[in-house]
């Protein structure tokens, strides 16, 4: 039973990280209909920035709470800047191009960023310092849930709530929803669509960076390649929930996280990644609109 609970919580932790990344995929897809292949790389860059900033701050002798807050801020800001730049360089010029062009551009961007980090930093794994201390009050539950699991769960929940509020109630959120429904019409009623698209990339990237920082500190090491696998898994989660749907992305992420955790816990960990890929292929074949997505009819 304890093992089950432990797997359950580790599944939730995984799921909440996937959710932070999947939201970026789903928001971008909802607004410009593009699978942003480079999104996993943004997450990886977020993790790297976090590692660099936290190490520098700790060498300079900052106290732990300050390190955590400043690191999170720096990771989010820089990842957002990367997301914004990527959109501007690689996707915006192609907004009216044939459907293949932005996809190829996105793949190119993903390869570029991966190798950029490889060359600028290192091809090896780097150890990531544990930012979150073990809380005393978590002692009795340590058998199945760690302090960093708790922090990840709480942080993600808070972020999700904030994001929902932002999209439901603010002007920006309304503009985003309008653009997602009909970009031309949104433009006609005076919404600055370019601006909305930039904000979507910035938001998505910031979320991914926070996810990158949390998971890196949880697992304890990173390299330039972590974005590729995490990206595909988060994308799987987004598709599972119905791409373009924000609650769908969260639901899909938790389902994927839990099933992965149980599958590796009870079956075998050799095929951990095969499992996610197979799931992705199966969903796309049998229910491409996902759990909460709507089937679209192409206008003729």
């Amino acid at each position: 039973m304890d093992y089950f609970v432990e797997l359950f919580f580790s599944g939730l932790t995984r799921g909440s990280i996937y959710a932070l990344i999947a939201l970026g995929y789903t928001m971008v897809y909802g607004i410009i209909g593009l699978i942003n292949f480079a999104h996993g790389e943004i997450y990886m860059i977020g993790a790297f920035t976090a590692l660099i900033v936290s190490t520098v701050l700790s060498i300079f002798g900052f106290p732990l709470p300050a390190i955590i807050i400043l690191t999170a801020l720096a990771a989010a800001i820089w990842a957002s800047a990367y997301g914004y730049t990527v959109e501007k360089l690689a996707y915006r010029p192609l907004r009216n191009a044939s459907r293949l062009s932005p996809l190829i551009s996105a793949i190119g961007m993903s390869i570029f960023l991966q190798n950029y980090v490889l060359l600028a930093q290192t091809p090896d794994f780097l150890p990531f310092p544990a930012l979150i201390p073990d809380f005393d009050f978590m002692e009795p539950y340590a058998g199945f849930i760690g302090s960093s699991d708790l922090v990840i769960l709480v942080t993600t929940t808070v972020i999700m709530i904030l994001l929902t509020l932002l999209i439901k109630f603010t002007r920006t959120g309304k503009a985003m929803r309008a653009t997602a429904q009909d970009r031309k019409m949104a433009m006609l009623v005076g919404i600055n669509v370019d601006h909305v698209i930039s904000i979507t990339f910035i938001l998505g990237s910031a979320l991914a960076a926070i996810g990158g920082m949390l998971i890196a500190s949880h697992i304890g090491q990173i390299n330039f390649y972590i974005g590729f696998i995490a990206g595909i898994k988060a994308f799987t989660a987004a598709v599972l929930g119905g791409i373009g749907s924000i609650p769908g992305a969260v639901l899909g992420s938790f389902i994927l996280g839990l099933t992965e955790s149980f599958a590796t816990g009870y079956v075998s960990s050799d095929y951990e990644d095969v499992f996610a890929f197979s799931l992705l292929v199966l969903i796309l074949i049998f229910r491409p609109s996902g759990l909460l997505g709507k089937a679209t009819i192409e206008k003729v």
Binding site: L94, G108, F112, Y116, L119
Partner: peptide, 18 residues
């Protein structure tokens, strides 16, 4: 820099000369 350049080529070709 091979892979870095390959990635850049994909983006640049799409933007400037699809």
């Amino acid at each position: 820099y091979r892979m870095l350049v390959f990635g850049a080529v994909l983006v640049i070709m799409m933007v400037f000369r699809p």
